[in-house]
Nucleic acid binder design. Sequence first.
DNA 1: ATTGGCACTCGGATCACCGGAGTGCCAAGC
DNA 2: GCTTGGCACTCCGGTGATCCGAGTGCCAAT
Lengths: 341, 341
Amino acid sequence: MQEERRLAVLRAIVEDYVATEEPVGSKALVERHGLGVSPATVRNDMAALEDEGYIAQPHTSAGRVPTDKGYRLFVDRLTTVKPMSAAERRAVSTFLDGAVDLDDVVQRSVRVLSQLTRQVAVVQYPTLSRSTVRHVELVALAPRRLLAVLILSTGRVEQRLVELGADLSDEALADLRTRVNSVASGEIISAAVTALRELAAEPPTADLAAYVGPVVEALAEAMSDHRLDERIAVGGAANLARYGDSFDSAVRPLLEALEEHVVLLKLLGEATAGGMVTVRIGAEGPYEQLSSTSVVATGYGPTDDALATLGVVGPTRMDYPGTMTAVRAVARYVSRILDED
Amino acid sequence: MQEERRLAVLRAIVEDYVATEEPVGSKALVERHGLGVSPATVRNDMAALEDEGYIAQPHTSAGRVPTDKGYRLFVDRLTTVKPMSAAERRAVSTFLDGAVDLDDVVQRSVRVLSQLTRQVAVVQYPTLSRSTVRHVELVALAPRRLLAVLILSTGRVEQRLVELGADLSDEALADLRTRVNSVASGEIISAAVTALRELAAEPPTADLAAYVGPVVEALAEAMSDHRLDERIAVGGAANLARYGDSFDSAVRPLLEALEEHVVLLKLLGEATAGGMVTVRIGAEGPYEQLSSTSVVATGYGPTDDALATLGVVGPTRMDYPGTMTAVRAVARYVSRILDED
DNA sequence: ATTGGCACTCGGATCACCGGAGTGCCAAGC
DNA sequence: GCTTGGCACTCCGGTGATCCGAGTGCCAAT
């Protein structure tokens, strides 16, 4: 069946090109891979593949190079999952296990991911929207000023200063504290916000009417602070130095993107749950200038639904199978760690 | 006086080389700058400058290029302070004035500095060691667990969970809170740590003996957490794309350094107080691999003694006067902003 | 459908060549 | 004693010309 062999040829081309970074010709192909046909046959297949847009030649009479479409087919149908070596696996787990807090987990993830893939790694901090409120604390700093401390299930702590319109008694504070916690603790952020707003709309006692407003507003603001959703860690930018050719055209926009966290987030895309790894190849992404870079990403988080996204960014010419398993593995480990505490 | 003219020649060489990125020859030199002598004279001066090691020729019969030593002399003696344009000044102040909190101030500083200098900007977060304790708050979360919140004069807030060996009464907590604040509030970090340790060593009441230890330890640990001293923001890495030539040799190690915050800190060097800008040229720095990059940095902070360091990193071939004024200006603005609140 | 053969293409390396910018030095001039 | 014009020399960098080889497409044979 020649259709089958054509795909084998495409796979071989992709693998060789990724390994050598040079256009691959028919002869070298039959030598390096054990497909039992002659170069001429392969040439016919290549011509067909080129007609269908899976490969292209940079110049007449040069070898073939996969197109975005070719990579896409490769990723979708030709990838054989290659497991990580035991050593790699061990390195990941021991390195990540040493983390002391959320920041550290993210930091270490970025590092290990970039080293594993030799690519630029990007890890989004766990999103607030999916996490739950563990506890709310209200602390009187002065008669008319208090500190609202918000502790989330992800381990993140946010605090806000609140100025009050009237002096606050200890009893009222204690009352407010219990009421706030009873409606918010254990709730998903979004649910907590609405519950708090309801509380503010109908103050249970006249005593509280003067305080509940500003306190709830401060908490709601802290919970939905969008700047937090945008927090991102980047690592392994030095790997960009391996781009070698096509410098100003490829690396510069990428470096710019890495500093624009909003852009980066859009690049990573929506978090995908359940161990699914998303691959965006070249021009499939949202940014024209990054048409020669691919993104391999996946969601991660305690349960099955993703809390945030993590992945790597690299040239379209990258080792997709290896990168995908690395991304998947790191996501799994991070999820497990976040689950523990 | 020929000595004087020699220096003028050196200055002209540096300026031209920085502007054109090409070795500068005697003829072009007399044309572009109005030194009223002939090329031959300049050639003699150049020969002398070369003997003294201030300039060098990349190849025989090419123009001259400044050496590190030449840049050093230029920076030390030949720099004329060039003030920023009114527009630039306005841009800096309006951009920085929009900052909402400490993080934002640092973030914006990095951005404005990198845009101003078209170089990689580095800003160290205000060091804890110089800041003072504004307030300590202790919050009971459970009978045997409390949250210690540390508020610093820089606006930074740190919190630690503390597990206690025995149940804590409200009265003891209030007592502990006042005692801790009375010895720590307003003190420099280092003084606060020692004062707290003394408190822990000799508990004033038997009641407190069981709690004061862990609480003080948590606070002291938060105060002297060295990871905080290492926090750094980097921006403008995309400017590295302008390096063009000498890529793997120069950009790669720099990208690596930018991720190693410890390295970066060492690179920035000690904070210098009082508006003094430090310039480290090429091999003067502590890292061999960064021998073709220079660092322009200065301390910044509310008063005259520096709280932290900020600066830019770029190729030895950079516009030193412009960069120095930009760094100085940003440091001044940031200092002022930190002073306000 | 596959394969060997063959003519053809074209990119990239090599080499010779040349021009021009720049230098060093020397002798003449102020 | 500087400065300057002149001059021979060097050598980098660009421009062609040439050549080699990898690779292709096509065709006829199997």
